[in-house]
Each structure stands twice: as C-alpha cells, then as structure tokens.
Write a protein that binds this DNA or RNA. Structure first.
Lengths: 74, 74
DNA sequence: TTAAAATGTAATGTATTTTTTACAGTATGT
DNA sequence: ACATACTGTAAAAAATACATTACATTTTAA
C-alpha cells in the first residue's frame, strides 16, 4: 500500500486547541514522536489513530486528512 | 494503539456492488486475503487503505467504518 | 451434476507503523 | 542567564499490516 498522497491538518488543529504534541499524544494513546512524524507526513497512520485524532478535535476524518489518488496517466 | 472497537460495512457495500473480494482487492491494490480479513474485522487497516475503499464505493470513510471508543469508566 | 468461481483460513515472510531511548535545538517565562 | 516546556530527529526494537502460497470448503452457473 503506497499509492496516492496523504496529507493532514493535525498541526493546525492541535495548535488551535493549544495542545502540545505530548498532550495530544497522551489523549490519543500514542507517543509524541508518532504525532510529530504524522504532522510531518512521514507516514500513513492506522485508521484507529485517525479516528482517535478526529475524535479529539470533534471533526470527521475527511476534515483532518486528505488523500489524493495518484494521477493515472496510461 | 488498540483502544476502541472498529467495525466496517465492506461486505455490505462490496456485495451491493457485485464485486468479488478479488476484484475489490485489485481495485484498491491489496490482496484478496487482506479484504477477507478486513471484512471479518481481523485488523485495523491503514488510513490509505480506508481511503481507497471509500473511494471505490464513493462514500466517506465514516459511512463505511465505525469506531466506538472504549467506555471510559473511571 | 460438474466445473469454475468465490470464500475462509492458516503459516510464513516482508514492509511499515509505532515504541523506546536518547540527545540537541528552540521557545518562553522568570 | 537560567530553568522548563516544547519540538525535531534518529536508531533500534517491537508490533502489526499486508503479501504470498497453499489448500479446503462453499457457492454459483452451465
């Protein structure tokens, strides 16, 4: 599974909520490094983590994460 | 990351669309076993896979996957 | 009823997420 | 200037997603 491009607004919503990476991490049950890597788009999180984050910010997954399928030029 | 309970309606939408596990698998770029395991809630897929599936069925992630946080009784 | 297609599942391997530990840099308040 | 909180990052290990191969059973179509 690699495919399209994944992006997110975690940094935006986290700073709006005045949470540190550490506090957000604790809320969603992962480590600070996981949040940091996420904000820098270093990987494709699990669906459960995406749901946990959406839950904290009271948003839908689509409001936080965007996925653009690879351009299929054949 | 374990936490709440994850459920999905992949079987429902797949059969409505008259797709075999194999065909759906090919469309989203995973193997048939991955789709099978997903339908039987055997794991927590990546967000990208969730997006790919939502895309095929032209639905939002929330319409297909549901996540219920563990009851917090403290 | 027979063949082909579809499904369930298991075992083992690989890839990737996530943790842990750690250290250095930046920002903030006092 | 100093302490403290926050952030960036990295390496190694642990956990788990996903692939591959394989085989048995069930379903469907001719």
């Amino acid at each position: 599974m690699k495919k399209g491009n994944l992006d997110n607004k975690v940094y935006l919503f986290r700073t709006q909520a005045r949470l540190s990476q550490e506090k957000l991490a604790k809320k969603v049950g992962v480590t600070r490094q996981t949040i940091n890597a996420l904000e820098h788009n270093r990987y494709n999180p699990s669906l459960v983590l995406a749901f946990e984050i959406a839950y904290v910010f009271d948003k839908s997954i689509e409001e936080i994460f965007s996925y653009s399928k690879e351009v299929n030029h054949e």
